[in-house]
C-alpha cells in the first residue's frame, strides 16, 4: 500500500521532490499571508470589545496553532525515521525544528504584544503562554542536541528520541500548566470571553492559517534540501546537480 512512498526515502529522489514542491509551497504562502494580513488589517470589522488591537489575531492564532502541530509533525518524522530507519525522515525532522521555533517565537511575541493592551501586562503566567514558552524550550533542546553531535547520522537519531520524549510531554505540560494556573490565580484575566467569531473575521483568519502552514512547509522543504546536501556531500549526484545548475545559470 505504501510502496509508492519508498523511493522518496532515497535522498536523491527526496531532493528532487523538495525542489519540485518548493515553489508550490512558497509563493502561495506569500500570497495567502499577504491577503490574510491585508484583509485582517484593513477590511475585517473591528472587535466590539477590543477595538483594533484584536487584529493581531490574524498572526497570533495561526502561529500558535501551527507551533504545536509543527512539533507533532516533527515527532512523527522522528518516529518514521526510528521505526523504518529512514535517513530522510530525520532530515525532515531537523529541517522542521528551526521554523517551528520561529513560529513559536512569533506566537509568544504577538501574544505578549496583544496582552499588553488587553491585560495591562506584557507577560502573564497564563496557561497557554506558559506552555508555548515550554514548547520553545523543547524546540531549542532538540536543535541544540542535534548541533552537539559531529556525526549527523547519530545526531538525527538522538534528536529524534528527544523530539519523541517532548511530544509525549506536550499534552501533559499543556494540561498541567492549565491546571496549575487555575489552581493558583483563577481564570480572571487569562480567559477573556471570546465572542463566537463572525464570518467576515473568520475568512481572513483561515487564509492566514493556510498561509502560515504553507510557509512552514516551504521553509521545511528548503532546509531539508540543505540537510540532504550537507549529508550527501561527496555523492556523485550532488556534484552532477551542482554542475548542471551552474551550466543553466551560465546559459541564462
Amino acid at each position: 500500500m505504501w510502496k509508492w512512498l519508498h523511493p522518496y526515502a532515497k535522498p536523491e529522489r527526496a531532493y528532487q521532490l523538495c525542489s519540485t514542491l518548493q515553489p508550490y509551497f512558497f509563493w502561495p504562502a506569500v500570497l495567502c499571508i499577504l491577503v490574510g494580513s491585508v484583509w485582517g488589517l484593513a477590511f475585517a470589522p473591528q472587535d466590539y470589545q477590543q477595538g483594533d488591537s484584536f487584529r493581531i489575531i490574524y498572526i497570533h492564532v495561526p502561529s500558535a496553532i501551527l507551533s504545536m502541530s509543527t512539533y507533532v509533525a516533527m515527532a512523527v518524522a522522528a518516529l518514521v525515521g526510528i521505526v523504518w530507519q529512514w535517513r530522510t525522515a530525520f532530515m525532515a525532522m531537523i529541517a522542521m525544528a528551526p521554523v517551528g521555533a520561529v513560529v513559536t517565537f512569533i506566537a509568544l511575541f504577538t501574544g505578549a504584544a496583544w496582552g499588553k493592551p488587553m491585560w495591562g501586562t506584557w507577560w502573564v503566567w497564563d496557561a497557554r503562554l506558559t506552555s508555548e514558552l515550554i514548547l520553545l524550550f523543547l524546540y531549542l533542546g532538540v536543535m541544540s542536541l542535534y548541533g552537539a553531535f559531529e556525526d549527523k547520522q547519530q545526531a538525527g537519531k538522538a534528536a529524534g528520541v528527544m523530539a519523541l520524549v517532548g511530544v509525549v510531554n506536550v499534552p501533559i505540560i499543556h494540561y498541567s500548566v492549565e491546571w496549575w494556573n487555575t489552581l493558583h490565580q483563577g481564570a480572571t484575566i487569562s480567559k477573556f470571553d471570546k465572542p463566537s467569531i463572525a464570518p467576515e473575521m473568520l475568512w481572513p483568519l483561515l487564509i492566514a492559517l493556510l498561509g502560515f502552514a504553507l510557509f512552514i512547509a516551504a521553509v521545511t522543504v528548503m532546509r531539508m534540501k540543505n540537510e540532504i546536501i550537507r549529508r550527501e556531500y561527496h555523492r556523485p549526484w550532488v556534484k552532477e546537480m551542482v554542475q548542471s545548475a551552474k551550466e543553466t545559470n551560465h546559459a541564462v
Binding site: L138, G141, S144, A148, I173, S176, V177
Partner: peptide
C-alpha cells in the same frame, strides 16, 4: 543520548528541565 558528548553537562540540563515541569507542578 548525551553520554558520548564531551561537554554534555549543560545540554543535559537544557534537555531535561522542560520535561520535568509537569512533575514539578503536580
Amino acid at each position: 543520548l548525551t553520554v558520548g558528548l564531551q561537554r554534555g553537562g549543560v545540554l543535559l540540563a537544557l534537555l531535561l528541565i522542560p520535561v520535568f515541569i509537569p512533575l514539578l507542578i503536580f
